[in-house]
Nucleic acid binder design. Structure first.
Lengths: 101, 101
DNA sequence: CGTACTGTTCGATCCAGATCGAACAAGGGA
DNA sequence: TCCCTTGTTCGATCTGGATCGAACAGTACG
């Protein structure tokens, strides 16, 4: 539990990425993380985006984005910090993240 | 009915495109149309991709892709020919179609 | 004209996934 | 040691969208 892993970027498929980005809530999160450009606390993402969902739903979306290979999670005490895997995603799917802005 | 219109490329949003491409059947169709590179009959798309769905479902997917701005439909007698709006989509979302291959 | 073929539309069904709440885990601070 | 906060997990619920079949529309062809 204390370690949160994400898939290697080579194993990330565009199919999974598209499925992950098809949800409006997750798309909002990715845009916010892109704008933040830094490690961000999960609850801060909610606050900054104004999205109102339960914390279990937030946890679900974070997991989907992580499993799709788009974000990375780091444990920081009681918090989970997340960040967009910008360089890796850009390297694998050039231009994708720019399209979302 | 005899005229089938698609949205102007400037009005196409990445959100709608992502939603359209999130479905595996539609993703298969887009890849097939990309490979074909030409006007293709709807039933031919089914035959070439090996996808087995009813014709009403096919009609639904074609409409979703058209409304999302990804394909264009042309009436040819009793048939409806479809084609990928390659140049326009490439112009609006550079690199997107290449990611799907 | 009638038949065959392609596709649309409509209503119904079904299901994957979004959502929630409760219970639980774990760390930080008084 | 409590208690508060953050987040996960699990079960249940709900809903949007994929799917189908039947009916219909339009065209080509005999």
């Amino acid at each position: 539990m204390t370690v949160v892993t994400e898939p290697a970027i080579e194993t990330v498929t565009i199919d999974a990425v598209l499925s992950a980005l098809a949800d409006p809530v997750r798309l909002t999160f990715v845009r916010a993380l892109d704008a933040a450009g830094d490690w961000t606390c999960g609850s801060d993402v909610l606050r900054e985006t104004g999205v109102t969902i339960g914390k279990s739903t937030l946890s679900h979306h974070i997991k989907v984005l992580r499993d799709a290979g788009l974000i990375r999670t780091r444990v920081d005490g009681v918090r989970r910090l997340v960040t967009l895997r910008y360089d890796e995603v850009e390297g694998r799917f050039p231009g994708l993240l720019a399209m979302l802005r």
